[in-house]
Design a protein around this nucleic acid. Structure first.
Lengths: 230, 230
DNA sequence: CCAGCTTTGTGAACGTGTGCACGAATGCCT
DNA sequence: AGGCATTCGTGCACACGTTCACAAAGCTGG
């Protein structure tokens, strides 16, 4: 056995911030900025400078003391760590309201996640074209996943059919799922699932609003103080 | 001054799980289930039973030892804590792809967040009807927010105009924002912001896929073991 | 070549979240 | 009425995440 390089594990919290840094670094590069300090990046990302440094230190020591980080090089390193050196085709299950919006949203492909296919269980929807991709029947899922080497599936179905969609995706060979349906999916342990739930987000905001209204706390008026909030 | 009831603060992690419990409890009530144990709820929510008990204990002691929780009563308590005893009208900024999908998605109003209005800066879009709501010009934002008592704003614009949308929302009197644009917003400290970023989620999945592929770790085949993943 | 300034990288302290383990309370059965 | 099985509520230990603070490392100007 070769002395396999023990891949350093990056904390979840850091992984979820790297995409934000990456977007900002890209914008800076676009704007001609060649070097950036942890404080500058922190400001733009709405976080603490020490956090930025610690996050980046997990990738290796790519900064220069007294100077900062070279933007282009850092972009390269973050992209590499996130596995964005090549495209990851995705397949969308569900051609309803959300599926249509996702397919129509161009930023998908631009960011390295081209839509390899959209499928729906409703034959009436099959054949229509969304964002340049023809909707196909869900039975064709295995074929799409295999021929296009798809690893990531997006569930954009109603809650009632989400589990079925997940089962089909897993069976077809997908190993990561982005779930927009308001359902807790049951999948094999090896499958990575991330959930985006609109209702949950709104209810969290509701909690804070309610707290604000009923709170006996003398809300300290912070006036015009501004914070960057991710 | 009255001896104001010091409102117990609920941990963020718990607040973000309460909506999930609430949905499940609602489904159970619908199905005729009258009582549920922490273990039962944990199973359905894809979490640990101790966590469920601790989470619920922040609301008060609403369970019965040896029995479990009365579903209907618990639903009431969770709703109360989340401030869902009344509706929270929302205003959507941006009538593009996403704005349309959000407006068309009926589950919005059903869950207590009726769409009080949709606005766009593009005069060409003004007047069109989305999901039963007529698109109005963004200049009417203050009026909508005031007459409809809107506290929550949803940003569904492209990234480039998101900060402007946020500024307008805040100026109009909104105190909570749900941001779908891939931008870090700068707002007064008192404003609660939550972000939903598609690209970030996909890139996190990409990280794990890349890790899976390049990882020198001998991936333990967990076979058919299934986990509920939120 | 050295002094002084800047900014990184990281050890250590602190805070938040998780999960176990067990006492306490309740219902049921005899 | 008493014993037993069940399930909640929570103290405690541990893991994870955040922030501070400072030494190390590099650049610049004289």
């Amino acid at each position: 056995m070769s002395p396999e390089r023990t891949r350093r594990r990056i904390p979840d919290a850091t992984v979820s911030r790297l995409p934000v840094y990456l977007r900002i670094l890209g914008e800076q590069a676009e704007a001609g900025v060649e070097s950036i300090s942890s404080e500058g990046l922190a400001e733009l990302a709405g976080v603490n400078a020490a956090k930025v440094r610690k996050d980046l230190s997990y990738l290796g020591s790519y900064g220069t003391r007294g100077v900062g980080y070279e933007v282009a090089y850092l972009v390269y390193q973050v992209r590499r760590e996130l596995g964005l050196t090549h495209d990851w085709p995705v397949v969308i299950v569900g051609a309803g309201n959300l599926g249509q919006a996702l397919a129509g949203y161009g930023g998908f492909g631009e960011r390295g996640f081209p839509v390899a296919g959209i499928v729906d269980i409703d034959s009436a929807k099959v054949g229509t074209v969304l964002g340049g991709t023809r909707v196909r029947h869900i039975d064709e899922l295995p074929q799409i996943v295999q021929t296009r080497r798809v690893n990531i599936g997006v569930i954009a179905t109603p809650g009632a059919t989400a589990q079925d969609a997940a089962d089909r995706l897993v069976k077809a060979g997908v190993t990561s799922i982005l779930n927009f349906a308001p359902v807790v999916l049951s999948v094999p342990r090896a499958i990575e699932v991330r959930k985006v739930d609109l209702a949950v987000e709104l209810q969290i905001l509701s909690y804070h609003e309610q707290r604000r209204a009923g709170g006996a706390i003398h809300a300290v008026q912070n006036g015009t103080g501004r914070t960057a909030s991710a």
